[in-house]
Design a protein around this nucleic acid. Sequence first.
DNA 1: CGTCTGAACGTTATGCTATAACATACGCCA
DNA 2: TGGCGTATGTTATAGCATAACGTTCAGACG
Lengths: 165, 165
Amino acid sequence: MPDPAPDPAIAFHAHDHAHCCGGLIAEAEAIAASRSVRLTPVRRRVLEILLEEHRALGAYDVLERLARDGFGNQPPVAYRALDFLVDQGLAHRVARLNAFMACTHPGHSHTPAVLICRLCRTVAEAPGSRVRAAIDAEAETAGFAVERTTVEVLGLCPACREGAR
Amino acid sequence: MPDPAPDPAIAFHAHDHAHCCGGLIAEAEAIAASRSVRLTPVRRRVLEILLEEHRALGAYDVLERLARDGFGNQPPVAYRALDFLVDQGLAHRVARLNAFMACTHPGHSHTPAVLICRLCRTVAEAPGSRVRAAIDAEAETAGFAVERTTVEVLGLCPACREGAR
DNA sequence: CGTCTGAACGTTATGCTATAACATACGCCA
DNA sequence: TGGCGTATGTTATAGCATAACGTTCAGACG
Ligand SMILES: [Zn+2]
Ligand SMILES: [Zn+2]
Ligand SMILES: [Zn+2]
Ligand SMILES: [Zn+2]
């Protein structure tokens, strides 16, 4: 199958975005089926909304777009769908922004480092395993048992970095 | 001088807490003086409140305690003091908790890894430099220019880990 | 089929987190 | 002493998140 190791930070590069979204929706369908959980219309639409741009959206932004499409327009509608996607690893919560982003590498259980461009607001995922190893080492020293990690990085993406010079 | 490298995760160990707080207040005074910024009564009291326990407090928890002491009891009073402390590196924001903690190693410019016990809510700082190096390496690969990092770890502190067995 | 059941969804209401905007007080220095 | 910048007090509002309850719907089972 023609799906080699994808660029982790694909969000930062020009790419066939329609293909990127379509593929991720298809992956989500497959994952949901394999786990016997339901990617219902609301959940699917929320994932599509998150995928539309490589940016993190607040729950109320998502809600507004949902309402336009005729879904319920009360906060729990958005939060429940977002919680589902996060639980299934199809989206990530960005604590620094109180916002949510679609996962670009679902399936692999991972805790990515989230790269957030402070100028264009683009958000990408970098591999988290090396960072996680460093965290585990420090935690070990402190006698702390790691369960979940949050690694978020604010800075400039390649494009904005170029523009800022 | 009798001040050897302090235990980074002192919060997780039994210690002379009055001495620990007093020392940190004194350090804060010195830092403020050296930078010609003012550790005013509100700011100082907020730092004391954060130091009372090694836990992260929400702005409204801080505010409630401030009000008891006769300071203003509107949100901006707490937020302004907290922002000052964070700017000066005397406190840290914990994004995962929407809360604030006193810094236990002020002065050293640092971005610690914050260790949060999910049972007792104790919060400690682990050295962030190795984690930061790992982040820099991943960011380099993605062409991303790192400016600020958030590293927060949820898990069990040594005591709760023992109790949970 | 018909009915039961649990998951998902819609809706109301409320609570927590954070900041904008403006007024007042105070210390410092020309 | 007058002006200025910093800090504080206060009002109002914006933004984020969840509790609680009723309704709908798909699938399981007899
Ligand atoms: Zn991901
Ligand atoms: Zn950018
Ligand atoms: Zn610190
Ligand atoms: Zn604990």
